[in-house]
């Protein structure tokens, strides 16, 4: 290996190489890709599987509404069995549910990261009054009990936007959830970025830019932002799973995505009470969501190690 080759490696490329070498992170990445493909390809899977997410099979339930047969009605036709009560197919609902959950989590993570980064940079660089105001808003947002506010606000919004005889489309509910996450979720990123910027702003390259008469926008987004990619990427990758869980927690309180739209959180919530009588129903969605979140967390951890070798193994 010649010295010139070594010298030509950018920090980004070095990080990529470190990530490639981390076996756990790569397994996680492949797992995530599989989950992603299942979610995106849900309609195709429905076609191949031959059963839709709203189709009911109540004749396969006993008089208590429990699926007949073994392990929650698992059969060649229903791979993961049937839901007690409504008698819908669990496998296809999980595929569609993953689609809903992943979309909400990704969108919420993007929105909160953007807001957090912008406000964090502004507060950290400008300091003074603006910093004080933004920091106070962060404190305020942290002091608000998130779940209680979500519980109060989410059901109300739909009533304001849709007439009493109009069905509220799922896309609107999804947008509301993303909005709620955005209002409360940006603070963490903002705090982190603000701290980083404070330590960067007195560095020579920023002073140099300032001395050259660079505009504020240029300094904030051309000079500072490129130096923040690593922590932002890591927070982003860890934010996605936290919104997957967050969305499930809202469903747990009955304010997430509602019937009949398939959704991971709602499914787990509904299944939990059947833990003793139909454990298979709890098992499939519960383990899948754990695997999904674990894969995200392991990948995020690997990414952190790759980008910031000092903290890693």
């Amino acid at each position: 290996m010649s010295t010139t080759e070594l010298a030509s490696r950018s920090p980004g490329r070095l990080a990529w190489m470190r990530l490639r070498r981390n076996r756990v992170a790569m397994i996680s990445a492949y797992t995530l890709i599989v989950f992603g493909m299942l979610a995106v390809g849900a309609p195709l899977i429905e076609m191949l599987y031959g059963i839709g997410p709203q189709q009911q099979f109540q004749h396969k339930l006993n008089s208590f509404g429990m699926p007949l047969g073994y392990a929650g009605g698992i059969s060649g036709e229903h791979w993961f069995g049937l839901e007690p009560g409504l008698g819908r197919d669990i496998f296809i609902r999980m595929i569609y549910g993953m689609r809903t959950s992943l979309f909400i989590a990704l969108a919420a993570a993007i929105v909160t990261t953007v807001i957090g980064v912008v406000l964090g940079i502004v507060a950290g660089y400008l300091g003074g009054k603006i910093d004080a105001v933004i920091s106070w808003i962060i404190d305020l947002a942290l002091a608000m009990p998130f779940l209680i506010f979500a519980l109060a606000v989410v059901p109300t919004i739909a009533l304001r936007f849709y007439g009493p005889r109009e069905e509220v489309p799922t896309s609107f509910r999804v947008a509301v959830l993303i909005l709620v996450f955005a209002v409360f979720g940006w603070t963490g990123t903002a705090r982190l970025v603000r701290g980083q910027v404070i330590s960067l702003r007195e560095r020579e390259f920023i002073e140099a830019a300032r001395a050259c008469g660079a505009g504020l926008g240029h300094i904030l987004f051309r000079e500072l932002l490129p130096n923040l990619w690593a922590p932002i990427l890591v927070t982003f990758s860890l934010a996605v799973p936290s919104y997957v869980t967050g969305e499930a927690a809202l469903s747990f309180l009955g304010i997430g995505i509602t019937e009949p739209t398939p959704d991971f959180g709602a499914m787990i919530f509904r299944s939990l009470s059947y833990l003793q009588t139909d454990p298979a129903y709890v098992f499939f969605p519960g383990v899948t969501i754990c695997a999904l979140v674990l894969a995200f967390n392991l990948f995020g951890d690997g990414l952190r190690d790759a980008l910031d070798p000092k903290s890693g193994a």
């Binding site: 006993n62 008089s63 007949l68 073994y70 392990a71 929650g72 009605g73 454990p279 098992f283 674990l294």
Partner: peptide
């Protein structure tokens, strides 16, 4: 960590597998 998940899996499977749901009851 995978062993833990496997443990949960086996436990749930054990509870699930042995009972067949039928149409009886009071």
């Amino acid at each position: 960590m995978y062993a833990r998940i496997a443990g949960v899996v086996m436990l749930l499977a054990a509870v699930t597998a042995c009972t067949k749901t039928t149409n009886e009851g009071n």
